[in-house]
Design a protein around this nucleic acid. Structure first.
Lengths: 223, 223
DNA sequence: GACCGCAATCTTGCATGCAATTTTCTCCAA
DNA sequence: TTGGAGAAAATTGCATGCAAGATTGCGGTC
């Protein structure tokens, strides 16, 4: 539900771009799928023109690969790409955390702490689904706290791209309490206004997320 | 010359996107200009379709603002936006410098030092134009040295967007030797593998670039 | 039996035309 | 003179048709 349907002033191409992106992210369109213009046009009940414009739009997000005259395919994410994305994500999030430590206002700090504390119960209950949702909220608050739309948009885009891989991480055994503990260090550093510590803690945290994902990926591919 | 014209496999829309972006960056299309599809189509000798696709593509870069059914205009960059962009640029470049310190291979380190040293002569000669070009090369090398296409693409995009404002900075009195001295600290830290120092030095450097720009902007608007 | 060349088919790229909405101009009234 | 309502003009959004290039399958030859 990214696009409020009530936003009447949206072109079909915009809507299509969102729909296609969602389909890619939720796995309906797996990596390697050919994005046939006729097929997409028929599926969404429009002509090829808006589909083409949506594809152009998606091209710049990295979700799809477009080779002129040869069509578009859902981007195959190699493990090398994945590492690049995770490193970029870690660095950007660390930067956001740094800026939060330097510039969050009292209201934002209080909200951040409140949200973080509220996840403690979810950890104890072992509710992976609810924790994953709260986790996203926490990170989004940190993006917002950076007070820099350019950085936070970029971070949000990366997060969307990595979403299919991140959601798996909480299945790693014992990941929930660890995640909470890492968040604790981050939030503590931000609230204390310690920029360097916030940066380091977030970098560490996201790196561990990558490790957790790889652990899950290995065990599930071995199973 | 971003787009090699010899790359035969490029669609008209891609070429147009590049042309329009260049026109915006070099000032041919000043902020606030309406991007009339008929006009652009006629100017570039094509139909409206590729123009529309180019506009879609540019929409995601932040260079233009598109309001559905109301056309596209070259984005007005407010001073607030500008500060946001400069901060984002500083953070990303600092991150790249950090990664360079951690991961540049010997060849890259030697090349970086060689390029930096070669700019010393330009400073002494007071050649602002040549120095500006060398300055870009230096920063691009640092992007590349981060070994992360996601980050370096983002950095390059930001640099393009800020290009019109950055070029002015070297007109600030005494900026050239200062710039060189700042580069010296950055390069030194990278070569020494000191990640924290490289990060801090680059952050400092880009912040000073912003200061220098504002100084030039104020004096020229006051003149 | 394998490889190379050619043709048929399919897919994308571009142009044009029509529909829908926004903008602007004009005219009328207060 | 100014404000607003309505219509005309202009501009964008979308659909369709045609052309160019790519892929695939087939036949011939070595």
């Amino acid at each position: 539900m990214r696009d409020t349907p009530s936003a009447g002033s949206m072109t079909r191409a915009d809507i299509l771009a969102g729909e296609i992106a969602d389909s890619i992210i939720d796995g309906t369109l797996p990596p390697g799928s050919r994005l046939d213009e006729h097929m997409l046009a028929e599926r969404y009940g429009t002509s090829r023109t808006p589909v083409r414009e949506a594809i152009r739009q998606l091209k710049t997000t990295g979700l799809i690969d477009v080779r002129p005259r040869r069509g578009a395919v859902v981007a195959e994410v190699t493990s090398r790409d994945l590492e690049t994305l995770f490193v970029a994500m870690a660095e950007i999030e660390a930067t956001c955390a740094r800026l939060c430590a330097l510039g969050m206002n009292p209201v934002e700090r209080r909200r951040l702490q409140a949200l973080h504390q509220s996840t403690r119960d979810l950890v104890e209950a072992g509710d992976q689904t609810a924790y994953a949702a709260a986790n996203i909220s926490l990170h989004l608050q940190i993006y917002a706290g950076a007070h820099n739309p350019v950085l936070s948009d970029f971070a949000a885009g990366l997060r969307r791209r990595l979403a299919p891989f991140r959601n798996a991480q909480f299945r790693a055994p014992g990941r929930l309490p660890l995640s909470f503990a890492e968040h604790d260090v981050i939030v503590e550093a931000i609230l204390a206004g310690n920029a360097a510590a916030a940066h380091a803690a977030m970098l560490h945290h996201v790196s561990l997320v990558e490790d957790a994902f790889e652990q899950v990926a290995r065990s599930s591919s071995a199973a």
